[in-house]
Design a protein around this nucleic acid. Structure first.
Lengths: 120, 120
DNA sequence: TAAACGCATGAGCAATTATTCATATATTGG
DNA sequence: CCAATATATGAATAATTGCTCATGCGTTTA
């Protein structure tokens, strides 16, 4: 198809063909949003620490507090966010609540990210 | 080692052994920070759209503007952030600037993330 | 050389976010 | 039943962020 033979992009622009191609490959707005929200959740040092700590073992909240060295309240707030995104799950045992990773993809994402920052 | 035979965690806490293990596996503060910053950058719909658009081809700024449907200024600001993180590179050609992906890991991270959101 | 164009950038603003503080809830032991 | 413990949560606050608007800078064209 020629540069102007494109019905997806109507605006006057520099390279209609490129724009068409890019638009064709675009994610839906909803998927884009979900993807952004996933990464946004991973984009906080405290949550990364929590996820890493949980990656090898189940931990109760007070253990997590000791590991990440933040206030119990701050940790609980972050755990809530991680729960909301279904990245961690929990199990109650008496007064305590044991948290663990609920999603294998997360481990992969984290290690992929680690590999990235180590390669430059 | 016994539950109390641990010099890493000195505080009185519930499960010292667990805490020791978790602390031993921890990333350095600097790496944690860098990792969080990487994910934070991926945690924005506009930047995701830009990166996805660039994943298959080089694009000039005005094409990116057309694809992501945001103001030129907003796009330039986001490109600056992506440049700063070395996720994209650019090349000038007359008045125009052509952007492209500067890091293969990013593609992997993005597709991993997409896989994640599609699997639930 | 002046105007037009493509892009970058600083300031300003509204929205979001992460933490802390205070308090609430639930469970256990005395 | 009461106090202590483990965790959760709402409100408040400070910091960050993403956009818009205005403008600046470099390149091309008339």
């Amino acid at each position: 198809m020629s540069d102007r033979d494109c019905d997806v992009c109507e605006q006057l622009c520099e390279h209609p063909l490129n724009i068409c191609r890019a638009k064709a490959d675009m994610l839906s707005d909803e998927h884009t949003q979900q993807l952004a929200e996933l990464f946004k959740i991973l984009g906080d040092p405290t949550r990364i620490k929590i996820l890493r700590a949980l990656s090898t073992q189940e931990l109760c909240v007070c253990d997590i507090v000791a590991v990440v060295q933040m206030g119990q309240s701050a940790v609980s707030h972050q755990l809530r966010i991680l729960r909301g995104a279904r990245l961690v799950k929990y199990r109650k045992e008496g007064k305590m609540v044991w948290y663990s990773i609920d999603d294998d993809h997360i481990e992969i994402l984290l290690s992929q990210g680690i590999e990235h920052i180590q390669h430059r």
